[in-house]
Write a protein that binds this DNA or RNA. Structure first.
Lengths: 358, 358
DNA sequence: ATGAAAGCGCTAACAA
DNA sequence: TTGTTAGCGCTTTCAT
């Protein structure tokens, strides 16, 4: 009985070298952009094609100490914002030859086991896109020598790089817009209490409302979930003095608020009740919602992340300052129109904060 | 000048062994579940903790020939269905110690470069969730010795494993439901012409309509995109004899259809126009849509994928038959009510096809 | 139970 | 331009 084993083994560089009549190094050089004579190169290419050879990423990683893998930790994908982030990140990273390995956490309190795993996979960099206060884990990661950027939350001590939207400006703009539209009674649906994004948005909104001399907004927690926001909306609209304007700290909750206000309370959104969100996910533009919302300029943010990561990975000096990137209020129909709207060249209506001074 | 280099090197098993006063092999055995005396084990654990040692996944992969990485190729994440797939897959895979590496294709004609990359990453298995006719690439992958499953499309020659929904039953059920509700004039918005899912759903729907003796449905391509479906809806409703019932070959397009029919044509969905989708993504349950749709039982499908993959990876016999998994029509409000609805124990309304014979 | 040694498939000096 | 050689960090026989 003849045992044919080599058939089932994945071909290696040595196999190619043998078939092409050259050394392993020559083969390696072809795949790493080294100097190889045309004659040798073509023999190698031919042999490789014949054997269907593809260099083993794993083995290469071991010697080069680069996996070309970027870890991304994300809490959930229900909120359309995160798939958008993942997709854009994946696209940009792919251009540089990097791929994403996905770590979906579930809002657990202790992320250390996940961290262990991320680190053991030998990723070249990590993006923490979980909206919680992940500074601890991120820092550990960085101390282990792996470049990290926190997306959508910032390390107050600026030890790890962070890229985040202008939460304060966004929330203030939302408040100013609602005030300019003549609203007088405000509600707010907050996200996760542990997340810096939600806190910053909540505080800024409340402060802008107070600055204008109105009663402080009624606040209900929505936990960044759809169902949570449904409950929160019910509570707000069941108040003795229900608000006529509600700011939701993300779009995902705003969709819940709009629908609940409509179906359970018969509100006419954009007329007797204004709702503003935060993120500007694709669904915000759907006719059923026409959500007025403060956008996160994802393109810019992702660019920053990529720039930082590639610099850090290649040992180049990287700007460690937290990056707060400003968006714009995208004016649609879910909030009553305020004065001062202008249409930008993209055909989108935008709105500038007039109350520039804090 | 003293150069301290070892500080910045990630600790290795040898470092731990040296500190613990044992051999490399002992350290390895601790992490692979081998036989180690309690005394040695505790010394090793302590040393590892002190050095913050984590075994290198890369090095391990090289010797064991297992990366614990599963590649997943997906076309886009705009359609909420895919994030749901990715998340569930990630969760289930994580239980078995596997992680997902993401390959987002963009519906390119030639997937070979992507395949090269997938294969070079040394993944232990691959899931093709792009809805196009990826049988060719999938087959190549399998021939390279990497277990593959095609999700949501099937290889007609059954050479590679596939897990797919009951497209035909689903589409027939949708048609039967609309007919039972008294509709007489039908439209259909199809997906990508190259995708088996869309074709099967289109053909089955049309055939069921014909079988009942009605005029064949008006068909417009929506290309599985939101914008495409908006256009398709406009065309259908601008017809001289516009349909009063439209079947969309996925939910994502159904959302576009519902909104376009409402805002551009003033239709009252579920009354003067019925719309049915396919997938049952989370958004289908939102009050704004109340989409009646044929569900893909994601849980079951993912279980099948995992089972096949783990078997194949571990060289166990795996059932190579294509798996067609049946869902149910989830009855909500976007389609006029038909006779024969029953509420299941989960509180969802479901509907059984009565016209069982083909 | 433990250690020595070989080797996984590749890259990167170094020599020729 | 080429080949030889020595690892990368781990697992895994094989002796002990």
């Amino acid at each position: 009985m003849v045992i044919v084993r080599s058939q089932n083994r994945r071909p290696t560089g040595s196999d190619v070298a043998r078939l092409a009549g050259v050394s392993k190094s020559a083969v390696s050089r072809v795949y790493t952009g080294g100097q190889v004579s045309e004659a040798a190169r073509s023999k190698i290419i031919a042999a490789a094609a014949q054997l269907k050879f593809r260099p083993s990423h794993t083995a290469r990683s071991l010697t080069t100490n680069r996996s070309h893998l970027i870890g991304i930790a994300v809490t959930y994908l229900d909120n359309q914002f995160y798939p958008e982030v993942v997709q854009k990140l994946s696209d940009c990273l792919a251009e540089g030859g990097y791929r994403i390995v996905l770590f979906i956490t579930h809002g657990e309190d202790n992320l250390d086991p996940v961290l262990d795993e991320i680190l053991s996979y030998g990723v070249d960099g990590v993006v923490f896109a979980s909206s919680s206060r992940s500074a601890g884990v991120a820092l550990e990661c960085q101390n282990a020598g792996v470049p990290v950027v926190m997306f959508n939350s910032v390390d107050p001590q600026a030890r790890v790089k962070s890229v985040a939207p202008a939460n304060e400006i966004g929330a203030r703009t939302a408040a100013a817009y609602l005030i300019a539209a003549g609203h007088t009674s405000f509600g707010l649906i907050s996200g996760l209490e542990a997340s810096t994004t939600s806190i910053e948005r909540r505080v800024a909104f409340a402060s802008e409302v107070a600055r204008a001399g109105f009663e402080k907004p009624a606040i209900e927690p929505g936990h960044y979930t759809f169902d949570g926001a449904v409950q929160a909306t019910r509570k707000l609209l069941s108040l003795a003095q229900p608000p006529d304007a509600i700011f939701c700290t993300n779009d995902h909750m705003a969709f819940a608020a709009i629908q609940t206000a409509r179906s359970d309370f018969g509100r006419n959104i954009g007329h007797d009740l204004s709702i503003i969100g935060f993120d500007n996910v694709a669904i915000a533009g759907w006719p059923a919602f026409g959500l007025t919302t403060y956008e996160q300029p994802l393109g810019l943010m992702i660019d920053s992340i990529i720039l930082y990561l590639t610099n850090a990975i290649n040992g180049r000096a990287a700007n460690n300052e937290p990056e707060i990137v400003e968006g714009a209020l995208i004016v649609r129909t879910s909030a009553r129109a305020a004065l001062g709207c202008t249409v930008d060249d993209g055909g989108r209506m935008t709105w500038q904060v007039k109350a520039a001074e804090k």
